[in-house]
Design a protein around this nucleic acid. Structure first.
Length: 270
DNA sequence: ATATGGCCCTGGTTGC
DNA sequence: TGCAACCAGGGCCATA
């Protein structure tokens, strides 16, 4: 599932391929789930817009669009679980479950495909799109500690709460808690300042490493080139239920928190 | 305000 | 062997 590192990889890859292109044509599929903005409105607004920049904001991919100096919009893509953004020549066969195709000047097509239809496309007027939470890579130590103050929920659930931190999903929540030696069930508001600072450091290190390696992949993520990432070899607890902890050798346990599979080592994480 | 659980979706895996 | 049930989970919504 694409989280911050995968989304960043896709955004950068797409940016390199479509920056400066103009949207010449728009095709939108018949399924309604992917469209937060009505299809008619999106199909009407996009043609003629120039793509000025593509970047990541939390788990969102933001396309800065401009028609002229005064008309600016943003096309915001969320990949959900299985969403893919591909830049392809028109003769490349259309993937299954394609929901949107933007024809670009220069001949290529920007395609959005999503089997499970958890992904979302939206059109935002102006240029001020911001995700709901703090960026995990740039949040200050003090702000990070303050996020969890007074919270009675588990630290794992808090990490997944996008209103607090924007971009952390199930993989990096589990991996950062393992790296920080914190039990996922720990009550967020009761963790010491020192342990929370350790978690911030662990999370930052893991996210940066994953970005370096081009994003994780379990099965659904494909970057803008159509090549799967390989960071899954590095996962220390995620989806390793019953296997040996790479540090102490004891079996990795699996529980469910906030409806998500949660993997941890009971010996290394207290 | 905060927290929790159900729901949407399809494809890969499991089990009979 | 074939098919059905189950599981994966991000975000949204209703509910407590």
């Amino acid at each position: 599932m694409p989280e911050l590192p995968e989304v960043e990889t896709v955004a950068n890859g797409v940016n390199a391929r479509v920056c400066g292109r103009k949207i010449a044509s728009v095709w939108l599929g018949r399924h309604k789930e992917p469209f937060k903005t009505p299809r008619a409105e999106m199909a009407d607004a996009l043609p003629g817009m120039r793509i000025e920049r593509v970047y990541r904001e939390g788990k969102h991919i933001v396309f800065d669009l401009a028609r002229d100096k005064s008309v600016k919009s943003q096309w915001v893509v969320h990949l959900g679980m299985t969403g893919r953004l591909l830049v392809s020549a028109p003769e490349v066969p259309m993937p299954e479950h394609t929901h949107a195709v933007l024809g670009l000047t220069g001949g290529n097509e920007l395609r959005f495909a999503d089997a499970r239809r958890f992904g979302r496309l939206a059109l935002v007027n102006g240029a001020g799109f911001h995700g709901p939470g703090h960026e995990p890579l740039t949040i200050s130590p003090e702000d990070f500690v303050a996020l969890f103050r007074g919270r009675k929920t588990s630290i794992k659930a808090a990490l997944l709460n996008q209103k607090l931190l924007h971009g952390v999903g199930n993989i990096y929540a589990d991996e950062s808690l393992f790296r920080a030696g914190i039990r996922p069930t720990a009550v967020a508001g009761l963790l010491s300042r020192a342990r929370l600072l350790g978690l911030r450091t662990a999370l930052g290190e893991i996210l940066r490493k994953a970005i370096e390696l081009g994003g994780s992949s379990v099965s659904d993520y494909v970057d803008a080139d159509g090549v799967a990432g390989f960071f899954q070899l590095e996962h220390k607890v995620y989806m390793r239920t019953g296997e040996q902890c790479l540090v102490c050798g004891r079996p990795i346990r699996r529980i469910v928190i906030a409806g998500r599979g949660t993997h941890y080592c009971a010996h290394c994480q207290r």
